[in-house]
Amino acid sequence: MSTKVRRVYGYLAEFKNASQLYKAAEKVRDAGFKKWDCYTPYPVHGLDDAMGVKRSVLPYFVFFGGLTGFLTAIALAYTTQVGLYPTVVQGKPANIFTTAAFFPVMFELTILFSGFTVLFGLLALMGLPRWNHPIFASKQFARVTDDKFFIAIEARDAKFSAESTKALLAEIGGDNIELVEDDSE
């Protein structure tokens, strides 16, 4: 007989609307929690400040992604056009002075590499794709992509305690407070 060990993920509490969630988020932040999140059907503006979430670092990634694209284009254009195979068409040479003709390719590759950096940088920052998150064990959580607002405080957080965290969520107006447990063994 095997014994199933269920790991506690944390508490999930529902809030009535965006403004209630906002106020509750400020209180959870001030209580000093770190590993928690607000779940909403759409991006609620201002919630970053209420949660104490810093501005995304994605733009820095994208800057270097774009720079890589730009340098790639320069390398590609000069290596092939000036170095490897200078094509002289209609008497137009290919050298450092014909740089203007390479602008379109430089521009497009800058955008292309930036676009890919946005895609992969975003996925990396969000930790996606991840199809097996423990929070999906909650039945009521399926409504988060429809019209419900939730706060989940994770058990990993140093301040987490089975009683006081639950009491806090109830105090700040949380309904349907649920202990979410991981299904995995």
């Binding site: 988020a25 999140d37 607000c38 779940y39 991006p43 949660m51 996606l128 794709p129 991840r130 992509t145």
Partner: peptide, 8 residues
Amino acid sequence: LGWRGGNR
């Protein structure tokens, strides 16, 4: 992709 709608 396992989207959860968390504010983070």
